[in-house]
C-alpha cells in the first residue's frame, strides 16, 4: 500500500518512490529504483527493451506488487483510480462497446451503478473526446476503429478519469506520425494548462527531448540517468546504453535534434 508523507506537498511532489525492487524468482527486474515526481511535470521513461520500463510503471500503479521499497503520496487517497490513470501498452477491445462507452469507463470510479453518470461525468467525457479529436467517432464501435483511433479512444478514457497523475506505456507506438505528434502535443498541453503530472514510456528520443521535461533512462532494472533530456542524452550515454552513435545537431530554428548513426555495437 501507499505510504503518506505530508511534507511532499510543500515540495510540490505528487509521488516519491524509494528503493523499489521487483523480483521474478531470483531475477531482479527492478533494482532499488528511487525517484520523485513533481506536479506539472512531463516525464518520459526511455530505455532498451526489457530494461524494466513497463514493470516500473506497473509497480508504481501497484498492478504489480513491489518486492521491497516504499511509495509515498502527499495524502491518503480513498480510491487509487481518483489519483492515477493508466494507458497500458495493449488494451484489449474484444467487445462491441461504443467509443463513448469506453471513454465513460474513465468515469466509473466516480459514480455508483444506481445513480448513473452525472452532469460532470458527461461533461468530462465530452471534453476528453474533443481533446483527442474523436468526437465524430463517439457512436462508433471500438472494434471497428483503426489502430490509431482506438489508441486515441483509450487515451480519452484516461483523460476522462481526470487524475493528478497519468501513466502511459508507449502511447504513440501504434500511431502514424501525425497522430503521434498530436497526442504528444495534447499531453504537453495538459501538463501546462492543468498542472498534471504525466509519465510516459517513449522510444523516440527526439520526441523525448522535444516534448518532455525530464527523462529517466532505464538500464537493466535501474535508472541509469535522469534529468532534462538534452543534458542526459549525451552521445556517450547513448552509446553506452542504447548502443548507437549519435550526435546533437541544431536545426535552422536552433532546436536541438538527435541524429543517429548505426554501427554494429556489441554490448
Amino acid at each position: 500500500m501507499f505510504k503518506i508523507n505530508k511534507e511532499l506537498q510543500e515540495q510540490s511532489i505528487v509521488m516519491e518512490f524509494e528503493e523499489i525492487s521487483f523480483k521474478v524468482g531470483p531475477k531482479k527486474i527492478l533494482k532499488e529504483v528511487s525517484h520523485n515526481l513533481k506536479e506539472g511535470c512531463f516525464y518520459s521513461i526511455a530505455g532498451c527493451n526489457g530494461s524494466g520500463k513497463t514493470t516500473l510503471l506497473q509497480t508504481l500503479l501497484q498492478i504489480k506488487k513491489a518486492s521491497s521499497g516504499k511509495i509515498y503520496l502527499q495524502d491518503k487517497v480513498e480510491n487509487n483510480a481518483h489519483y492515477f490513470s493508466y494507458v497500458p501498452q495493449n488494451t484489449q477491445l474484444e467487445f462491441d462497446f461504443t467509443v463513448e462507452e469506453v471513454v465513460m469507463m474513465g468515469r466509473y470510479p466516480y459514480y455508483s451503478g444506481i445513480t448513473g453518470p452525472g452532469k460532470e461525468d458527461k461533461e468530462k467525457v465530452k471534453q476528453a473526446l474533443k481533446l483527442t479529436d474523436i468526437e465524430h467517432l463517439s457512436k462508433r464501435l471500438v472494434t471497428t476503429l483503426s489502430g490509431g483511433e482506438r489508441q486515441r479512444a483509450i487515451i480519452a478514457r484516461a483523460l476522462a478519469q481526470d487524475t493528478p497523475i497519468m501513466f502511459l506505456d508507449e502511447p504513440v507506438s501504434q500511431l502514424d506520425i501525425y497522430h503521434q505528434l498530436e497526442v504528444l502535443n495534447l499531453l504537453r498541453e495538459i501538463v501546462d494548462t492543468q498542472n498534471k503530472t504525466i509519465v510516459t514510456v517513449l522510444h523516440d528520443l527526439n520526441q523525448v527531448s522535444k516534448f518532455t521535461d525530464e527523462v529517466m533512462v532505464m538500464d537493466n532494472g535501474e535508472i541509469a540517468a535522469y534529468g532534462p533530456p538534452h543534458e542526459v542524452l549525451s552521445p556517450s550515454l547513448l552509446k553506452e546504453i542504447f548502443r548507437v552513435n549519435a550526435e546533437w545537431i541544431y536545426t535552422e530554428d536552433h532546436k536541438p535534434h538527435l541524429v543517429f548513426h548505426y554501427h554494429h555495437n556489441k554490448k
Partner: peptide, 19 residues
C-alpha cells in the same frame, strides 16, 4: 457486478487502474 465486468473486459491492467 455488471460495471466491474465492463472494466474487466478491457483487460486486467485497465480494470486495476480504474479501481
Amino acid at each position: 457486478y455488471c460495471k466491474d465486468m465492463n472494466l474487466l473486459s478491457m483487460g486486467n491492467e485497465t480494470a486495476h487502474s480504474l479501481g
